[in-house]
Write a protein that binds this DNA or RNA. Structure first.
Ligand code: SF4
Ligand code: SF4
Lengths: 135, 135
DNA sequence: ATAAACTAATACTTATAGGTATTATTTTAT
DNA sequence: ATAAAATAATACCTATAAGTATTAGTTTAT
């Protein structure tokens, strides 16, 4: 599964918004572009707004723009806000606290993919994404 | 989330069995050692048995042993059998087929963690795990 | 003023994963 | 023979994630 569907949605939304950060975007436009179930999308937008990533403007010519500079928004923070990062950072075998004093056999094996994954999330910002698009 | 709870369980079961591969283990013993919900554990064992990883012996002194050499059992195959690998191999944004002709901005960013993850799963066997335990 | 075009909040429904219960079947020790 | 101890199969229940519906509130063009 990797990341939850909701995280996927959040990334898709913010990616699209980042690539169009000059313009204010309404839920309707985002729905037409991203085809995420409309009501779910709207709820997510409210969540992302309350989390401080984006800023909502109500009313007739309302919509969403970023509330913070793209350079400051890391993927890790986005995923953390919609589904939490703990399950990615903790024990791969699901133990809330490692019950063993010395690392078990699994630990070493998962270390590399786990770190690579977290490292990517923690070092990539929406600004990087915008840059990547120009390649 | 990374991998499903069921995948976690499967890995824990087979890891424990690998580290004790000389002896036949019953569901009761595995339950006592791993504390996975007993009935769910039993169902998983039947599944793993039907998938050909382990072999069940019924009756009073029954239990489970490996049906194949540990060197041949890759993590990828285990996870594939209990939850499928497609969601890990496919598009990170959840698109069943990539709708865009040229890779989107996300693609490059996820490439590395995704490949590292899959590479680990596809190159690590239960035998490696047993070895790692000796470190 | 009023209607249109938005976002906000909350409750409800549905799908899926995880977990439980029941019953049947097999083998061996006695 | 029979009871005990094990696996097998299937149906059911529960928790969580995903998705939908309803209603309220805000702003601007007319
Ligand atoms: S040593 Fe094993 S049990 Fe402990 S945190 Fe690492 S993977 Fe989990
Ligand atoms: S290019 Fe983008 S949409 Fe296509 S497969 Fe890669 S991540 Fe998915």
């Amino acid at each position: 599964m990797f990341i939850s569907k909701t995280s996927e949605y959040a990334l898709r939304i913010l990616t699209y918004m980042a690539l169009n950060s000059e313009t204010q975007l309404s839920a309707t436009i985002l729905f037409e572009e991203l085809r995420i179930p409309k009501r779910y999308l709207m709820r997510l937008l409210t969540d992302l707004s309350k989390s401080g990533f984006i800023q909502a403007t109500r009313g007739r010519s309302g919509g969403y723009v970023f509330a913070r500079p793209l350079e400051s928004i890391f993927f890790s923070e986005i995923i953390d806000s919609v589904e939490g990062l703990l399950s990615y950072e903790g024990c791969v075998l699901g133990n809330p606290v490692c019950p063993i004093d010395k690392p078990c056999a699994m630990h070493h094996i998962w270390d590399k993919p786990k770190l690579t994954f977290l490292q990517t999330l923690k070092t990539t910002t929406l600004a990087d994404l915008k840059e990547a698009d120009n390649i």
